[in-house]
Design a binder for these strands. Structure first.
Lengths: 111, 111
DNA sequence: GAGGTTGTTCGACGGATGTCGAACATGGGT
DNA sequence: ACCCATGTTCGACATCCGTCGAACAACCTC
């Protein structure tokens, strides 16, 4: 009956970008699957996790999204059973000006 | 006596940058020791391998320089028993405009 | 509430990666 | 010729990383 804090939803770990070493951001981007995800997110707006179909299992997809989130690259909003992911573009651009643009502009060469 | 190709010096493997996937460049930069090396090289000019003193053994240092070279980040000139390394800055800037600048401008946070 | 949807977590496994010391290769000096 | 200086290469080792299926958790709908 009494107010018992929040319902289910454990907080997602989304670090302050200043606490993330550059090498961690670079490492997060240095993977084909994750780079595909970031390219998709760069189109703007939110994307449901399930919409990323890159030939990996959902467990692997979940793993990659976690890596991106914990590297400060993405932010996740929980809504029902779905999670909506978006790029932390402004923050990234402010802290690492030009980085994301340069990576996104790079040729795709993944076939 | 006849001309028998070149003397000792086996060719160093220095790939065409267009053959290197972005993820490989990012991976090469996503390491503290290697990033230190790149920062030093960014000061310009050539640096002898031995001048990199970052608390790792010479075997490890050699390994990191190889990773950077094979990712197309550096170029190496052999002179006697020494090797002189330099950044492939113009090429990198042409193919990935802004990438190197962004990474180098990032806060150092390695203590 | 039973069942379906969406996504995470938990081992497990194989392959890559960072690290080292020791051995090797090469070239310069005396 | 010998030795030393500079680097590379070779196992070896520990750790990390990407991948998966299976189990679990939360939520929505009927």
């Amino acid at each position: 009956m009494s107010n018992m804090g929040y319902p289910g939803h454990m907080e997602l770990h989304e670090p302050d970008l200043r606490d993330v070493p550059v090498t961690a951001v670079l490492a997060a981007l240095a993977d084909d699957v994750r780079l595909q995800i970031v390219r998709t997110l760069a189109e703007g707006g939110e994307h449901a996790c399930g919409t990323f179909e890159f030939g990996v299992s959902k467990a692997t997809r979940s793993h990659h999204l976690k890596v991106l989130r914990e590297a400060g690259v993405t932010r996740t909003r929980i809504a029902g059973t779905s999670r909506y992911v978006r790029l932390r573009r402004e923050e990234l651009d402010r802290l690492y000006p030009g980085l994301l643009d340069a990576v996104l502009a790079a040729p795709d060469r993944v076939a």
